[in-house]
Design a protein around this nucleic acid. Structure first.
Length: 426
DNA sequence: TGACGTCAAGATCCG
DNA sequence: CGGATCTTGACGTCA
């Protein structure tokens, strides 16, 4: 398609990262939710959020969903911490990074925030939860293009009435929440046609989710791209760019389960069929940031040789652990610095992803990684390594246990190159 | 009453 | 004791 303005593209991921140091979120259970513990978790999580934001900036990721769990019991009465005041400096600093990078952040209360419930206690809690999410984005200083994504809720045997319960509740929400609230089709109850109807009544922009749509299509049969176009009408200037959710079904898993990674051929097919590419695409996928970078790189196509080398550095031992042949194929592919091999590169990695376990390949990769450690290994480390290798070959232990030993050895020596290898995380 | 989804904490088991 | 593995938690709806 001609005239595409690829620089407007924003592809992002949700909540957590894979293989990035210091980004782990913490939490506590209700039983342990003392003020002291809550403060401890908040401090850890804001620091993790900042590390994720830094990572996103470094990697050109301009769309990101912040986990609802960032503040423990954020909308529960047990949490009396005035976090938006007490951690003001963190919020300002993180917010400035987000804004100056041109990153768009969002939040997404889950399936348990139900605004149209028949139980008024549930409704009250849902409103509190929306307030919490809005307060968090406010604390970061985000404008109203930072959205809160919500599903409609239950049906209670009478969809018409359930929709009315939602729209009635919507009216009584504060303007602060209304400015941010957007609504999404789900995989069971409310299809995209319902969402557009509710959007007409409330004015809340509509988010199209492709996998939910596949599982729960409306009566009217338009193509996904026509539905996306319909949704586009619901986005106003002050809402920012239209946003959609994209995910792929995990093969062999329950209907609706997200795939481990976004497979590039179907993604590009979808992307190129979009009637308007000025859309933000939120990926929902297990490997999170990794698929975001992959999709960004394959859509941009002209990724520098240096950048691709950096990607390869992260993936290489993972690939080697699946197939030496694919490993060598990719090495050969990257020798030609002029060739545009981005798509082929990721397709090879996906191929490795899909291979079933090959013990020879696993051992070969482990030996390569061990090579970094063996020089100055202690006898205990070596003994354990050899024991785990034997046990793996004898079927009395798994590759994961071997890998966790190797990672521990790498951490002990602060071998950053190894610590950042996806071999340990996917 | 349990499945659903999420993912780290908590509990328990193993060597 | 450290590390691996299994279970729980916190939420609401629906079969």
């Amino acid at each position: 398609m001609q005239g595409r303005r690829l620089n407007q593209l924003a592809i992002g991921y949700a909540c957590i990262t894979v293989g990035v140091q210091n980004t782990g979120l913490s939490r506590c259970i209700l039983k342990n939710a003392s003020e002291e513990n809550i403060r401890k978790v908040i401090a850890i999580n804001l620091s993790a959020l900042e590390a994720m934001v830094d990572y996103n900036i470094k990697n050109g990721i301009k769309l990101f969903r912040i986990s609802s769990d960032i503040i423990p019991f954020g909308s529960h009465s047990i949490n009396t911490v005035l976090w938006w005041e007490d951690y003001k400096e963190n919020f300002l600093r993180i917010g400035n990074k987000i804004t100056s990078a041109g990153m768009r952040v969002s939040m997404h209360p889950g399936q348990y925030t139900v605004l149209n419930s028949r139980d008024l206690n549930v409704v009250e809690k849902a409103v509190k939860d929306l307030n919490y999410h809005a307060a968090f984005l406010d604390a970061l200083g985000m404008d109203n293009k930072s959205k809160i994504i919500l599903h409609i809720g239950g049906v209670y045997g009478d969809k018409e009435n359930a929709i009315k319960a939602f729209t009635d509740q919507y009216v009584s929400l504060s303007q602060t929440i209304k400015n941010r609230l957007i609504i999404e089709n789900d995989d069971k109850n409310y299809d995209i046609q319902d969402i557009l109807t509710i959007s007409q009544i409330t004015g809340a922009p509509a988010v199209f989710d492709n996998l939910h749509h596949e599982l729960n299509p409306p009566e009217e049969t338009l193509s996904e791209f026509e539905w996306i176009k319909e949704c586009n009408q619901t986005w106003k200037e002050q809402d920012g760019k239209q946003k959609i959710h994209y995910s792929q079904q995990k093969v062999g898993a329950l209907r609706g389960s997200h795939s481990d990674t976004i497979f590039i051929p179907p993604f590009l097919d979808f992307y190129h069929q979009l009637l308007d590419n000025n859309i933000d695409i939120m990926l929902e996928v297990k490997d999170k940031n990794l698929s975001a970078i992959k999709c960004i790189n394959t859509v941009l196509r002209d990724v520098s040789a240096k950048k691709l080398e950096e990607e390869w550095a992260k993936y290489k031992y993972f690939v080697l652990s699946r197939s030496a042949r694919i490993y060598n194929d990719i090495r050969g592919m990257l020798k030609n610095k002029e060739a545009r091999v981005v798509i082929e590169f990721y397709e090879k990695i996906e191929h490795a992803y899909l291979l079933s376990e090959d013990k020879g390949a696993e051992v070969n990769a482990a030996e390569h990684v061990w090579g970094y450690i063996s020089k100055d290994s202690s006898s205990d480390e070596r003994k354990r390594y050899e024991k785990l290798l034997d046990a793996y070959l004898n079927d009395t232990s798994s590759a994961e246990i071997l890998k966790s030993h190797l990672l521990k050895c790498a951490h002990k020596r602060d071998l950053q190159y190894l610590i950042n290898s996806l071999y340990f995380y996917i």
